[in-house]
């Protein structure tokens, strides 16, 4: 059982390496974002399998954090390329409208 878990971990690492190759090769920006996102998913899986392999639960917390950060980073990168800025324009505007309405009452 341990050895099989180890093999799955190795397989995850190999999949990560293949994703790295796509990340290096490109050719377009979106290929790279896709590869980075997919690499993050595979890192999460690698950590989960690793935690089962060594029997430590702490790695699952790290994997949880990774899954969140990976998602947020992907969205941040894409937002950056869509709006050329990191501020969340739409959310800010609607928030400000709501606040203004609140204060007028």
């Amino acid at each position: 059982m341990t050895f099989l878990t180890f093999l799955v971990a190795i397989g995850m690492a190999v999949a990560m390496a293949i994703m790295l190759a796509r990340l290096f090769a490109g050719p377009t920006l979106y290929d790279r974002v896709l590869a980075a996102n997919s690499f993050g998913t595979k890192t999460v899986l690698f950590l989960l399998v690793f935690s089962a392999l060594v029997g430590r639960q702490d790695a699952i917390d790290i994997a949880l954090l990774y899954a969140l950060i990976n998602f947020v980073a992907t969205i941040a990168i894409l937002k950056f390329f869509r709006y050329r800025s990191l501020e969340i324009a739409l959310a800010q505007m609607s928030l400000r409208k709501a606040l203004d309405g609140e204060y007028e009452k």
Partner: peptide, 8 residues
């Protein structure tokens, strides 16, 4: 498993 993780 300590032997195995070093390969990882």
């Amino acid at each position: 498993h300590a032997d195995l993780t070093q390969y990882l």
